[in-house]
Amino acid sequence: MESARTRPSRALAAGEATSAGTVTAARETRGPRNRRTGGKLLDAGLNLYAGLALLYLLVPIAVILVFSFNKPLGRFNFIWQRFSFDAWKDPFGVPGIGDALRVSIEVAGLSTLIATALGTLTALALVRYEFRGRAAVNFFIFIPLATPEVVLGAALLSMFLNFSVATGFTTIVIAHIMFNLSFVIVTVRSRLIGFDRSLEEAAQDLGATPWQTFRLITLPLIMPGVISAALLAFALSIDDYVITSFNNGSTITFPVFIWGAARVAIPPQIYVIASMIFLFTLAMMLLTVWQQRRAERMAAVRPDEPEPSQG
């Protein structure tokens, strides 16, 4: 919400409270809907259109959930035959699928851990300190984000080939840390920009060492940004096929397994595991949102302020 303060409307808002909550409340009570023009038809049309767009986004996900209960006749899970729990009872019944999933989780866990640690330090340096070459570093970090994945994978393979490095688990992890770093840096950086430095200065005035200040003040304050960066990194890593395909050697991750399977057979187990990952991610997401809400509500309950209504 840092941006709320810097947008051009500042002059207009002068004298009024500009907190994000106020703006949101204002929008909800007197939004631009139906003012003067009374375009009810246009409104209905727009809502319908948005509904159809959402449907386009959600239908393939629904298809995966539904077809995970299918009992296909052939090798491809394309045509609905009949409802069955068979695939759900034996989700790892396809040879190799369980191992592939395990490898993917290991790669994602390891690369997330390292990328988040390195990326957070880089973001701290970029936002907190003024130093020569900062603009150049900002630009350099942006380039991997603007590079197609296929190029990232191909370049890394060129280097491994030149050094005759055998590709496998380690090279996959190296590649995943590489493509996750920029995402982590950008995510943590955007969180750090609104950071209140006076809190750290207060801690140091009260005699805290730099390390104590970092551990007790800085880290807890930037934690939400670090956690969202880690979640993003994990999701990107476990999803990646393109870059992995250049650097996996004979190691099979879950996406590599699916790619290999897709030409020969698509058993319903693939949809079962996709559904499991989907439901797990959804649950995690809802849990995070719920916890954040609760933390906000607790922070908001102070004697001098009335509790803001939850939107």
Partner: peptide, 12 residues
């Protein structure tokens, strides 16, 4: 929500 499903499987 589409991002909660592996890219390749979304395409499948």
């Amino acid at each position: 929500v589409p991002f909660f499903v592996t890219y390749l499987i979304r395409t499948l």
